[in-house]
Design a protein around this nucleic acid. Structure first.
Length: 1060
RNA sequence: GGGCGUUUAGCUCAGUUGGUGAGAGCACACCCCUGAUAAGGGUGAGGUCCCUGGUUCGAGUCCAGGAACGCCCA
């Protein structure tokens, strides 16, 4: 039997209870196995979540898509792997562990011990993987949680070794040098992303220095720098070839300065003694500011061209130090300049810089100023405030350092990967364009990072001769090991253990060691379609599941990260994409559309969201959203979704369950053929088929937005606001007859089907609904909605004519309500007639077919068809003199006459349609625009009319005494019902009703006594004393009068059950 | 500077292959209904669909150019 359902639900509590039941009863296990024998398979590959912190509501967005589509394909009977993944290695984890341990630099880590540190990193990953697993379960995400993959696994790391080996065999791995932003305190390079987060206002010593030109006595290039420490690495000076440089004379000295920069750069009196184009200065030699240093020996300083030079700041001549600046380094490559690299990884000057050697970069500005002054090369020094990049972790000023890193050359396979990307279906479509743009422009892939916790890059180099080789597997390493294997054996392939293993240098016979670098973490995530699908050990399994049918992740960033690394590694290994379709989604924002930040206080934690709004509500917010757009997320949006959809759905379900429980209705005991059901029954079942069709179609196309909208519209509009509202009385009837059974059967079928349609969206509440709607009357059914099949369209129930007719009826009902609203006659007052007309052939026939609904909905007694709708509206047309006067002048009189003679209905209709009216005035044709006419619409006397293009609906406003009394009786019923509610009575309780009334009101009550008694379950209705003992007393407004009633409970309907 | 996206009601957003008068929710005004709904419903007001030009019988939708904003790259 159905269980009664409360409409006051604590959804989060219901979810927790359901969650517990799922895992205790083995439902999840059965879900994972239900299709294991199926021939159809659907392959999903999970993009690993970084197991470094608790999961956020933005992760929940993506995980909801993942769950939705896996559930949908499960209900379609397709075999799947359900494997979740964790991203484990990388600096993110190191940073958090450093925070835990209070570390601020690499030295701290080295002192602590790399092995201990790496173990700490692993611990953190395990910890947060467990946290995220529990959170994901709370979201309702069904996965094979005991079988999650971890990118720190041996298999994942060794699979990358294989990939790198393949790259190396094709000659694509190389060692390169680049100048990058570097934190001297943390002793690490920073990515562009990290740099952009750490700009701060700083005051540094800036200076103008003069570089003596060779062969031009007492002539100097004047340069400006905000980083004096880089002067020791100077090798060139750049000018813009198109700029004009002036020779500025001060005393006996002549300075070259860009013309626009002279006022800013030159101090004191000066004289311009000549001009020269930048292009004419190219190749000039000069003496560098630190030529005496050993590191500068043999370096030739010269003037080079650079288009980026401008004269707005400084002197228009830029000092170039390829070992200490990024653009400088690029320019150096172009112009084949020497590279002088002054700093070690802690920002200390290396050997070869004489008195500077051993000094920290942050301390040299003043000594350098002094040194230049002594050498006569200083022009001017001063404190300068500017925005300067600093380390986001420790705030230290960044420097630029020449570093050696390892790269994969991209050009050899750039074209191929672009072709591979084109074979993928990108949702939204513009994803392809963005990915191609990235692929077209990307630089060689830098795969190394000078850190501790990550993939141990399998590159062994010989210190003696520089030879290197890439090891492709653990077995290859063992075979080639000449030392350290025992130390490594039994450990994961991480630092520091793997570093112990040495191999023979095949070039000089010496000993080769692993480079200390770890790998780029996107290698870890991108290899997953191989590592998790057993590419190395079970090729058949791999072939079965590769490529994935579907992946989904957040768009921003992933074009150059996961999407890229997936495509790159797969292109190299097998020449095809590892996924067929990718669904990208945008960024999660707060309710006002602002970015969520812990520091801003607008961040929402997943656990809070799940407990406050419930996982189903969260999921609905995610799934009803257009993934290409940023998602605004917050509690009031959750409330809105609950109010607009979740509650109407639940209330529809509760309506059925409560009445069915009350009636002891069992669907298995009834069978009413479709043909014997009402038009409304057949209509809602027909509409249901359409919804099933749309939802299947949209979900197959990864379009949750339109699937969700279709369901929501159906549930709220068709089911709740029309079908159930119009059919309530069929469920109230005390006797059990065939029509009531038809209503129950219909509503039950709709609710069960909707429950299944919604199961992938709202796994919790659909489970609760299903177990009551299905399992409580059919114990042989699957125990969980998540073990059922997805609904299919039943073509025999589709009735397009009925759909169309009902749509027309709803349209007319809207007009009828508008007509009532205009006349200000409330619905409780019955009216005698509604007249419906249409200018379209056959349109009224649809209304006639369904007129019972119209009459009842509008509370009108009779329905009539009118042939000429125009009879019920009259138009009064007047010229708009303010506009027409100035325009037509003397002709206006004739126009007014012509207007009066014309048919007002025709003119009114044209005007309302926004079209011009053509009149013939004195044999001339005059066209009057809509704004040149004033049209008043007047309903025919005694009617209220509403019309649009299709229909005219006129309500006859005649209220006969009989109708008036009936209206009063309805008011009375309404009041008694309120009294019942206020008295705390149950729906099925019967009452006695007494009242004190006189005159017309008493007449109304007497006349409609049977009706009132039926509606209010009154066994007795009589004039009497409402103040009597045991009576609940209430004052009721009837029309403009008041009447006092008293009610008291006398029993309850036979067969009724108490609401639980 | 290059690529991509966005621009529709006060706010947040829908608007399939171009098809008659442009939609929803929130907010607002008025009204109504209610023994399924601590709810809900209706009516109304509110829009040069960013701008300019083009294609077309017809453009929010297609094309070209431009603007503003956002993301990515340089």
């Amino acid at each position: 039997m159905f269980k009664p359902v409360s409409t006051k639900v604590d959804f989060p509590a219901l979810e927790r209870e359901t969650l517990r039941w799922w895992y205790e009863s083995g439902v999840v296990e059965k879900y994972l196995k239900r299709n294991e024998k199926s021939k159809k398979r659907w392959s999903f590959i999970d993009g690993p979540i970084t197991a470094n912190n608790p999961m956020g509501v933005h992760h929940a967005w993506g995980r909801t898509y993942k769950d939705l589509y896996q559930r949908f394909h499960t209900m379609l009977g397709e075999r799947q792997r359900y494997q979740n993944g964790f991203d484990c290695q990388g600096l993110w984890v190191e940073v958090e562990v450093e925070k835990e341990l209070g570390f601020t630099s690499k030295q701290d880590i080295e002192a602590y011990g790399i092995a201990r540190f790496v173990e700490k990193c692993k611990e953190r990953v395990w910890k947060y993987a467990a946290v995220q697993t529990e959170q994901s379960k709370r979201l309702g995400y069904f996965m094979d949680w005991d079988n999650s993959y971890y990118t720190m696994s041996d298999e994942n790391n060794y699979m990358i070794w294989h990939f790198l080996k393949v790259c190396h065999e094709r000659g694509w791995i190389y060692r390169g040098a680049d100048v990058m932003p570097w934190c001297p305190r943390c002793a690490t390079g920073l990515s562009e992303m990290e740099v952009s987060e750490g700009y701060q206002e700083r005051t540094h010593t800036s200076l103008f220095a003069r570089f003596p030109l060779e062969g031009r006595d007492r002539e100097y290039l004047l340069v400006w720098t905000t980083t004096p420490w880089t002067l020791a690495a100077n090798v060139a000076a750049a000018v813009h070839p198109d700029l004009t440089y002036q020779k500025v004379k001060q005393g006996d000295d002549i300075y070259y300065v860009a013309r626009e920069a002279v006022p800013n750069a030159i101090r004191g009196e000066y004289e311009v003694v000549g001009e020269v184009k930048g292009s004419d200065m190219l190749g000039w030699r000069y003496r560098g500011p630190f030529d005496e240093l050993p590191a500068e020996q043999g370096v030739e300083h010269r003037v080079i061209p650079w288009d980026a030079v401008d004269a707005a700041e400084g002197t228009g001549i830029v000092h170039i130090a390829p070992g200490a600046g990024r653009e400088d380094y690029q320019l150096g490559k172009e112009h084949n300049l020497a590279v002088v690299a002054p700093l070690d990884e802690s920002g200390v000057y290396v050997d070869g810089f004489d008195w500077l050697t051993g000094m920290r970069v942050a301390t040299v500005a003043e000594p350098i100023v002094e040194n230049l002054r002594e050498k006569g090369l200083l022009y001017h020094a001063y404190p300068h405030t500017h925005r300067y990049p600093t380390c986001w972790r420790c705030g230290t000023d960044l420097v630029f350092r020449l570093v050696e890193e390892w790269y994969i050359a991209v050009d050899p396979w750039r074209e191929q990967i672009m072709e591979v990307a084109k074979a993928v279906r990108w949702i939204p479509e513009f994803g392809l364009e963005r990915e191609l743009d990235w692929l077209r422009n990307m630089d060689d892939w830098m795969i190394s990072k000078k850190r501790y916790w990550g993939l141990a890059l399998p590159i062994w180099t010989c210190d003696a001769c520089g030879w290197f080789d890439v090891i492709g597997s653990e077995t290859e390493l063992k075979e080639r090991a000449v030392a350290g294997w025992e130390e490594f054996e039994g450990h994961t392939p991480h630092r520091p253990w793997v570093d112990a293993v040495k191999i023979r240098c095949e070039q000089c016979g010496g000993i080769a060691s692993r480079i200390p670098d770890v790998g780029n973490p996107w290698l870890d995530a991108g290899i997953v379609p191989f590592s998790t699908l057993r590419y190395r050990h079970d090729r058949e399994y791999w072939r079965e599941w590769f490529p994935a049918d579907f992946i989904t992740e957040s768009f921003p960033g992933q074009f150059r990260n996961w999407f890229y690394s997936l495509l790159a590694q797969s292109t190299v290994l097998v020449g095809q994409s590892p996924f067929r379709t990718v669904l990208g989604f945008a960024t999660l924002r707060d309710e006002r559309g602002e970015e969520m930040h812990k520091s801003k206080g607008n961040a929402i934690w997943f656990d809070d969201a799940a407990e406050r709004m419930g996982a189903d509500v969260m999921r609905w917010l995610y799934l009803k959203h257009n993934p290409a757009q940023n998602l605004n997320f917050g509690f009031s949006l959750g409330d809105e979704a609950r109010r607009q959809f979740i509650l109407p759905l639940w209330n529809s379900y509760a309506f059925f369950a409560n009445y069915a429980a009350l009636d002891g209705f069992n669907p298995a005991e009834h069978d009413v053929p479709l043909a014997e059901r009402t038009l409304l029954d057949r209509w809602i079942l027909s509409r249901l088929q359409e919804v099933v069709r749309v939802v299947r179609d949209r979900l197959s196309d990864y379009d949750s937005l339109n699937a969700a909208r279709a369901i929501e519209e159906f549930v709220v509009e068709d089911l709740s606001n029309w079908y159930i509202r119009r059919n309530r009385r069929r469920f109230w009837k005390t006797e059990s007859d065939r029509d009531k059974a038809a209503a129950y059967l219909t509503l039950h079928e709709v609710l069960v089907t909707v429950t299944k349609l919604l199961a992938p969206f709202l796994p919790f509440m659909t489970e609760v609904m299903y177990r009551n709607l299905v399992l409580s009357v059919d114990p042989s059914a699957p125990e969980s909605v998540h073990l059922t099949d997805f609904p299919e369209v039943d073509e025999s129930k589709v009735d397009p004519d009925l759909d169309r007719d009902m749509a027309a009826l709803l349209h007319v009902v809207g007009l009828g309500r508008a007509a009532r609203a205009r006349a200000n006659v409330k619905v409780r007052q019955p009216l005698p007639r509604v007249l419906v007309g249409s200018r379209q052939d056959g349109a009224v026939a649809a209304i006639e077919r369904l007129k019972d609904q119209l009459l009842d909905e509008l509370n009108v007694k009779d329905f009539e068809v009118v042939d000429n709708p125009d009879e019920y509206v009259t138009y009064r047309v007047r010229p708009n003199l303010a506009v027409l006067g100035p325009k037509y002048g003397p002709k206006l009189g004739a126009i007014r006459k012509a207007l009066e003679a014309a048919d007002p209905a025709r003119i009114g209709q044209l005007q309302r349609a926004g079209r011009p009216v053509t009149l013939t005035v004195d044999d001339e044709t005059v066209e009057l625009n809509p704004d040149e006419l004033l049209v008043e619409v007047q309903d025919r006397e005694g009617f209220s009319v509403a019309e649009d293009r299709d229909f005219m609906v006129a309500l006859d406003l005649t209220i006969t005494p009989e109708l008036r009394l009936e209206g009063m009786a309805r008011d009375f019923v309404r009041g008694v019902q309120d009294a019942r509610k206020n008295a705390g009575l149950q729906i099925e309780d019967t009452i006695e009703t007494v009242y004190q009334a006189s005159g017309e009101l008493a007449e109304a009550i007497e006349r409609f006594a049977d009706y009132i008694k039926g509606e209010t379950l009154s066994t007795d209705l009589r004039p009497g004393d409402p103040e009597a003992d045991g009576f609940h007393r209430e004052e009721i407004k009837v029309g403009k009068q008041r009447v006092t009633v008293g009610i008291t409970k006398v029993g309850r309907l036979a067969g009724a059950r108490t609401e639980g």
